[in-house]
């Protein structure tokens, strides 16, 4: 079978095809296959690896356009995923600068980690001398995020980063912010939350690639949602993103129970939404929007009960 590997020698990009016998690699992991190629066919092939047990995060690469942690992926799993494929394309993680072949530059990502103010600032009741206290429920809330191994798989798949990374950060950076903000020992969750908001929190496009690909089953998207809800709760709700989310909520709870798209535009961007007005007019012309809906759509059947339910839930969780 064949492996087409995307290569970069520091000057030029090219593809190189390696032919291997299936029996030589079928019992291996993806990392094992890369090692096999390097050690038997071509020692100029560059990639990074360290622990080979899915805890150091060094060996993330893409197969057929999707990111995998090399040592955590068995070849048999790939054979099953890409049925009957006798050729695989292996590429470096996307959304990183490639240094060589399958090796990418981690420096900018590390600098992004700095932005969310890493490191816990513990509550005053705790001390360096006696440590902290945390109950099981509080521990369970953050322990999943602590599984992050900085492998970069989530970032590689992120549609927002691909479109523009200048106003956004790697999903794992938000996960790191959330693990601190959501820690019961933390003195002020807003230290990390504010930093996340300032660095693109509301720009997530909800593509769920991060959640889907994470080898540690962390949901970057849900961590982003957690940070957003926290930011809203703490009054950090100015801007287009929060207004947009809020309008869905308002329609659901305070208005008809369903979304009103004209109000959505108005609530999100306010009266100054000249650009969007064009879209609304397009829609009305196409007969897709009922201009009367702006005065409030029909309330859904049983909406009062829905409101009661939500209020009960809110009350129960305030206690």
């Amino acid at each position: 079978m064949k492996f087409i590997i995307d290569r970069f020698d520091g000057k030029k990009n090219y593809q190189q095809t390696y032919t291997v016998e299936k029996q030589d690699i079928e019992a291996l992991t993806l990392l094992g296959t890369l090692l096999f190629i390097k050690q038997h066919l071509d020692l100029t092939l560059n990639f990074t690896a360290s622990c080979r047990m899915a805890i150091c995060g060094a060996c993330g690469v893409r197969v057929n356009g999707h990111a995998y942690l090399g040592c955590d992926t068995k070849m048999t799993e790939l054979f099953e995923e890409y049925k009957d494929a006798d050729t695989f394309r292996i590429s470096p993680l996307a959304n990183y600068t490639v240094l060589s072949d399958l090796v990418v530059d981690w420096e900018p990502a590390i600098e992004n980690l700095r932005k969310i103010k890493p490191g816990l600032v513990a509550k005053d009741e705790f001390s360096e001398k006696e440590g902290c206290r945390q109950n099981q429920e509080q521990y369970d809330r953050i322990v999943g995020q602590w599984d992050c191994i900085l492998c970069g798989v989530c970032a590689s798949e992120c549609n927002k980063l691909t479109a523009d990374h200048s106003d956004y950060m790697e999903p794992f950076v938000f996960t790191h912010a959330w693990k601190l903000a959501n820690d019961s020992r933390s003195k002020d969750p807003m230290i990390h939350t504010k930093a996340a908001v300032m660095n693109g929190l509301w720009n997530c496009v909800h593509c769920h690639e991060c959640t889907n690909r994470c080898p540690k089953h962390i949901s970057g998207a849900e961590d982003i949602a957690g940070l957003r809800a926290l930011a809203m709760r703490k009054g950090l709700n100015s801007g287009v993103g929060p207004a947009h989310a809020k309008s869905f909520y308002t329609d659901l709870v305070e208005d008809s129970g369903r979304l009103n798209e004209i109000r959505l535009a108005l609530r999100t961007e306010g009266v100054s939404t000249v650009a969007r007005a064009g879209t609304a007019i397009t829609l009305m012309r196409a007969g897709k929007m009922n201009p009367l809906e702006i005065f409030g759509g029909h309330e859904i059947e049983g909406h009062k009960d829905l409101v009661k339910m939500i209020e009960a839930a809110k009350a129960a969780n305030k206690e």
Binding site: G119, L120, A122, F126, S127, E128, K129, E130, G131, C132, R133, Q134, N135, Q136, Y139, I142, V143, W146, L180, D183, R185
Partner: peptide, 21 residues
């Protein structure tokens, strides 16, 4: 001393029933 220090730095130790490391 290092254990308390790490706990204070934010290391999420597993916890016993009293919330201690």
């Amino acid at each position: 001393a290092a254990i308390h220090e790490l706990d204070y730095l934010g290391m999420p130790f597993s916890r016993d029933s009293k919330g201690r490391v």
